[in-house]
Amino acid sequence: MHGRDYPRLFVLFLPLALVFTAFFLVPMARVAVVGATGEDGLAAYLSILTTPRHFESMVATVVLSVGVTATALAVSTVAGLFLVRNRFPGRSLLVSLLTFPLAFPGVVIGFLVILLAGRQGLIGSVSDLLIGDRIVFAYSMAGLFVGYLYFSIPRVILTVMATAEKIDPALEEAARSLGAPGWRVVKDVLLPALKPGFVASGAICFATAMGAFGTAFTLATNIDVLPMTIYTEFTLNANIAGAASLSIVLGLITWAALFVARSLSGTTVAVSG
């Protein structure tokens, strides 16, 4: 039944192939060409290095993304390991609560940051009561950081927990049977076993943060992260070639990060934010 099925398989695959080619492959190729048709030609692709505004935005985005990734990894490892290794009443509720913001769009998360740290936000009200000063940081780098951390934590916790659940409990018992105290078990057995999960979720987290647009858009910060720069180039400056080349570069960065993640772990987690 092998060979005879090929025409049928072809028919089954054709619709997706057509849609995907017409609306993704062709447009992406087109935009890559457009990126090189501006005043600078192909050099537009280097603008991320040569144009100071673009370069600054790039550096700010990378620094922010790396910071968020590191923090999210640390926070999620502590919480995720705790949830995998302990059984107590209310545990599954905690797991649900920690992972449900996974599908919140970036705009909504931006708004949540405003409620937390904006002009009428919770932190401001509390600090006003305590020290007579309204602390407002929603519209700064700190606000972006909080927002990005918000959408990163559920993703990383999911991956850390999935990896931790797959660790053979006998590994830990073996280390203990050989005389290893608790901290050595963590250092010699658990953390090494979690490493693939760290790489995978770290890459997902980094890629998500690099491409996040909604949160930055809502917070309308004065920090230009790369997606905001692209948006500004396109809408305000009508610099279509510039926007195109920047988005191709950004796309390559996030794709590379995710490719590493997938080839190391094989997970798919929604990247939207």
Binding site: D168, A170, E173, A174, R176
Partner: peptide, 20 residues
Amino acid sequence: RPIEKRNVGMVFQSYALFPN
């Protein structure tokens, strides 16, 4: 006494060799 203080040797069904 927890296992790490008992000085026993243990061989597991899954071997539990440290992959790292």
